[in-house]
Write a protein that binds this DNA or RNA. Sequence first.
DNA 1: CTGTTAGCGCTTTCAA
DNA 2: TTGAAAGCGCTAACAG
Lengths: 340, 340
Amino acid sequence: MATTGRAVRLADVARAAGVGTSIASRVLNGDPTVSIRLETRERILAAARELRYRPNAFARGLKLARTMTLGIIANVAYYHEMAEILMTVERVAADAGYVMLIADTADFVGRGEAYHRLLLERRVDGLLIASILVTDDFVKELKEEGLPFVLLNRRLPGVGLSASVDDARGVQVAVEHLAALGHARIGYVAGQTSAEPVRRRLAGFRAGMRGAGLTVERAWVKETPPDDESVFRVTRELLGERPRPTAIVVWSPTAAVPALAAARQSGLRLPEELSVVSYNDSPIAVYLDPPLTTVRMPLGEMAERSVECLLRTIAGERASSVVVRTPPALVERGSTAPPP
Amino acid sequence: MATTGRAVRLADVARAAGVGTSIASRVLNGDPTVSIRLETRERILAAARELRYRPNAFARGLKLARTMTLGIIANVAYYHEMAEILMTVERVAADAGYVMLIADTADFVGRGEAYHRLLLERRVDGLLIASILVTDDFVKELKEEGLPFVLLNRRLPGVGLSASVDDARGVQVAVEHLAALGHARIGYVAGQTSAEPVRRRLAGFRAGMRGAGLTVERAWVKETPPDDESVFRVTRELLGERPRPTAIVVWSPTAAVPALAAARQSGLRLPEELSVVSYNDSPIAVYLDPPLTTVRMPLGEMAERSVECLLRTIAGERASSVVVRTPPALVERGSTAPPP
DNA sequence: CTGTTAGCGCTTTCAA
DNA sequence: TTGAAAGCGCTAACAG
């Protein structure tokens, strides 16, 4: 049973079926133009099954100049968002017959060689870019290389296709929720606006405030690096302002955890003295203290669209960037209430 | 500049350097047995640089029967542990010149085809199995197939190599910490002991209790499916027992989040009325309420060893399973205190 | 020192 | 209806 020996090749199947490799190949690939006696076809199929034949992906890839592999460059450390994206992308790709190569960007600048291995060695038919750490320059280089790629939630018009959600609208919904509760003094933990999607969120915050007839207080909008420690520190600063906001919005669910901790450590009772909303949901939101009110964005849908878009580009069809317009869902939990 | 056209092949480099493909190949691959005029070698190297030559990985893979690719089957949803493992594995593999194919096990049983694509199409030189959802039967099948593989933190003596940490010792350390604080009534949220590493942890709990001269109360040891909702429910049940424990240990950091929430919702003040320790650390532990005391295991080291072990197996060397014995580190935060 | 060539396993004309 | 053979880009004998 254990055929630990060498793999079975197409030639083995052909020989077993008593035919040439040519028709064997065409039959197994379901070539519709082939006209063949039913009996012969059956024999080939049977032999393939019997021998547990599997085509060698590298041989086929070499011949067809298609690897049936997609690459994804991701920042795995952003697990709250990344887990859903990774899982979805992989599932959709698999359904289309593709496998996924993954490259992490923990140390993007120091890892040029690793990325070039992905790109230039013709290992992938296309690339998904899901990390903010990938520089615009790198993306442009990619474009020159001619390799199909799609950016996830990062719009770079003129240089590449992207699949994104309406971040601005999402943050706006968060603000509207707070305004509806009666909050007028609303702060924002903004992330680093050097990143494009983060800028869109900030714009959404401003739009939300404007729409509610509220003014944005400069001191209540704090940029911060995304690491937990910085978020914690900056949030404490924000809550140390006098006067201080009665509610804050946080730009990312990963950052919401340290932000919430900062709020607690500021000695504020949540949600009585301070409301907190996170942009984007997370599996743990419901188990935080207090359970975190969030705006849930359609990340899975975005991930799906990104793969479809990439596949279309690879197929040579004209694809265009997609913005998933599924409305953000406000998930009201325990971290928001009317202002004191 | 933009060479969007077809890729440059070795033949192009050879022609540009005015040599045959043979020496071009050997020079570029640093074949030590080649004796060549310095001048010629320089010409080849220069031409390759000039043309930005990159070998086609699939062609090379076909020829060498080595793909320079490793596969990893992971449960991405367990992000607390998985992020670190994924990042480490990818980095170590990249340093060795390998790229990583990833397959998620969200729906393992329904995805046989996807896994077989990985295994049987000769896309990978070896496989890392980092998901508990991969059945023992599948692993055995793998062994029959003759594909090198290493299990991450799952010991299956006789069927395959593994890299693991000393789970039993880790949980034991957690118990010792509680015992040292004076706790005698200690409960355990146990996970599903159908999984091998989970059984080892339970054994560690028992050993820790025995070592401290404490008796294990049946009603205080609860098995539970790993999903957050089940963990939450089961923890509440556990804390509803009368008498109830003054401290609990949770078998996984992912589960610690809902367990902590259950403790809070039981109306218990933490850590005054109840102490909680999580087996294994997590980036968010410090930001939970209260900050979670954990036992930090050397997962990164384990991941590193697993890749090394796999690489050695691939190289045809005799590799053996490795148990990382780096002592567990008790990370004391705010969720443990002496019993009331 | 360097070039020619066979062949990795597959698909796809082209001919029979 | 079917088979022979070329060739995808590379490496490694083997010749020269």
